[in-house]
Design a protein around this nucleic acid. Structure first.
Lengths: 237, 237
DNA sequence: GGACTTACCGAACGTTCGTTCGAATATCTA
DNA sequence: TAGATATTCGAACGAACGTTCGGTAAGTCC
């Protein structure tokens, strides 16, 4: 149920009036009983849009593709948002906000630095593999949005980065180590974001197993098996 | 000197004759004394094109942008290649071929498994940071080319992947370990390719230092400093 | 039942896109 | 220097693009 939650606005994109009657913006979901039909329809449209951007990229996708997918007219789409740019913005904002909310909830469950890093990895991979279309759009169309909308997304991204950096520094302190937090975070982001270029659900492990293995790799490297895997027979006598 | 080496063809894209007079295709360079003016001009055009694709993405870039950058007419560009797709193909093929050639040379210098993995990382990062435009185009426009041209690029990519996988399996055997080579390689690719999203030459380390740190991270993880960095004062008594 | 809002649509606008055509100039060779 | 070849160009083509205009039909409220 990717993109089921959308922050509704005071007014629709076109201005014949307000569909939500001047209510305050809030989060609604496809299954949320408090959501209006308008909000639910918008969420559906965004879900189709995410799939199309995922397939063809933002620039390569056309509004006519979206009209075909949603079985709406080209003009009818513009009742729900004011431009293609806003469409991308809504997808990215919703996706980023949701993965971050979920992360905060899960981090509240543990205070152990190493475990918290593993929670971060697991949360990211689980969300990524459950929402691969939107997450690819978020990561691949990183530099597409400009000006105000781009700045808003970049602000959320910075928050996400900062959370991870603090996890890393807590770990470093707790273990009495020295390493560059920035480099560790950015390397980790590379590992876990790159997944959209290769993950194949038919041959690769699921999110949980991947999170365990990538966590091991990130924390111990390939050379230090820790309590896991070490070959019984080997040059080690 | 990104994109200075280009494989010339028998004939130019338009067909008023053959500029290189029926010579065999071969590699030429901007500084290569054996390169024809035609080859050198094409290399210049490709370099401009790489910079434009780097800035705006393949779909977002227009042939008119390239005409402006090269100070040629729109029509004049098509003397050197037959389509925008071929333009991207030439950039990707040249870039991939070059980084792989350089890798093979460097790998010949060492037989020690761990050192060879470090050579791979260093080569990739050095080439990436010296040719960031073309390397971003190579990684970001991964799925853009379709059909025959896409298949050719994918074939080179598979070679590159296979080389790295073999390095990883040699290392695993030598150290008597057990880990998924596929996951290790793909995680490493994520780490070292993601760099184009964050590296800032004004604040971040250069290729050599980055290669050392990322190599440490990949081999030992954040928790096992090895002979490097461990805090003198710490909870370790 | 009339006024208003919500949700949508057909048709078109102006722009930009990749590509091509026919011709003109520059460069080289004999 | 004549002729061929290599290189470049202005102008235009048709297609596709994002967006907008003026409407219509159905639901809601007094």
């Amino acid at each position: 149920m990717a993109l089921a939650t959308v922050e509704s606005r005071f007014t629709p994109a076109r201005l014949p009036g307000s569909p939500s009657g001047g209510r305050k913006p809030r989060h609604v979901s496809l299954n949320d009983p408090g959501s209006t039909p308008h909000d639910r329809r918008l969420a559906e449209v965004l879900e189709h849009a995410a799939r199309i951007f995922w397939e063809k990229g933002y620039e390569g996708a056309s509004m006519r593709d979206l009209a075909r997918a949603t079985e709406m007219s080209l003009a009818g789409l513009y009742y729900y948002f004011e431009s293609k740019e806003e469409l991308l913005f809504l997808i990215q904002k919703h996706t980023f906000t949701t993965i971050m909310e979920q992360l905060r909830e899960r981090l509240a469950e543990s205070a152990a630095p190493e475990e918290r890093v593993r929670i971060f990895i697991r949360n990211h991979l689980e969300y990524f593999l459950s929402n691969k279309e939107a997450m690819k759009v978020l990561t691949h169309e990183d530099e597409t949005l400009r000006n105000g909308r781009g700045a808003q997304i970049r602000a959320i991204k910075r928050q996400y980065y900062t959370i991870c950096l603090e996890l890393m520094e807590d770990l470093r302190r707790a273990k009495g180590l020295q390493f560059s937090g920035r480099l560790a975070v950015l390397s980790l982001f590379g590992m876990i974001n790159w997944i959209y270029t290769w993950h194949n659900p038919r041959v690769d492990a699921g999110a949980e197993a991947l999170a365990r293995e990538m966590g091991d790799l990130f924390l111990h490297g390939v050379l230090h098996p820790g309590k896991r895997k070490r070959k019984s027979a080997g040059p080690r006598v």
